[in-house]
Amino acid sequence: MTVAEAAATALATRHRVRPLEALPWVLAVAAFFALPEYLAVGTQILILVLFALSLDLVLGYAGIVTLGHAAFFGTGAYAVGLLSAHLDWHEPITGLIVAAAAAALVGLVSGWVLLRTHGLTLLMLTMATMTLLHELANEQENLTGGFDGLPVEIDPVLGLLRFSPLTYSGQYLYALGLLFLMFLVVRRVVYSPFGHSLTGIRENILRMHAVGAPVRQRLVTVYTISAAIAGVAGGLFAQVNAYITLDVLSLERAATALIVLILGGHGRLYGAFVGAALYMILEDELAKEFPEFWQFGLGLVLVLIALFAREGLTGLFAQAAERFRKRARS
């Protein structure tokens, strides 16, 4: 097989499902049966995976560096919260659809306006948009509860899976099912011709302009899709926690998704899974007992990743696998 043929085969088969891809799902289902007392943390992990996955679409694939992704997470969360508090709308699935639509709208409008810029300006504008929404939610105290937060009341999913504070199995299954569904969407987008053109924009935006690709339109499209998914994550967060505060729109929330994604590896689909699981488990173990050390360690890991391991953990794993394969061949 010539090099060109090998490359053609690799390109033609790269979207196929590899056996290893079943691993996170098998683990997630296994955790349901094996670790019933950890399902509360498990649900939070699944939500964080979904949020980081949405960020992966814009950051990892389209190369849009944003510090304001919590704008969409928060919009989704407040959409569910406001429906429940003011319109007596407690049905979870339609609630999430509204959350996705609201976040997508914010994504479309802000993306349409902001994505003309790049670099520091874009970074600032995404952050400022998020903070603007934060201030808005803070100001509209009658609607959002302001600083005190907003209680959220949700009916059982399809009348079956209950959001009970005593058993977490219902919400875990609900979150897992949603994550799987959203993951299929993201995977589909990433391996479509549209997804490839996004990678092209990330790698060389000038050349994409030169070959006549509608760069800005594609960026706005992926930004909107990503916003909708982040909105679902936020809506799910509101439903599961039964309470939301302004925290869902904070810089910390946006930074957490970024850290999780970078730790796991961006532009790799499964980076979000590895990063979120590791982050939440470590946080659960360390953050309450040793908050300073947790924060210091988190910072140190970021510095080390920036300097030495830009591809994150899944990247390191892929490199090790590659080296192993080469050694086996020679």
Binding site: A255, Q295, G299, V301, V303, A306
Partner: peptide
């Protein structure tokens, strides 16, 4: 961004 956010966390801690 990653390097400097990391430094911020370390300094805050």
């Amino acid at each position: 961004v990653l390097l400097t956010i990391g430094l911020v966390f370390m300094m805050i801690a």
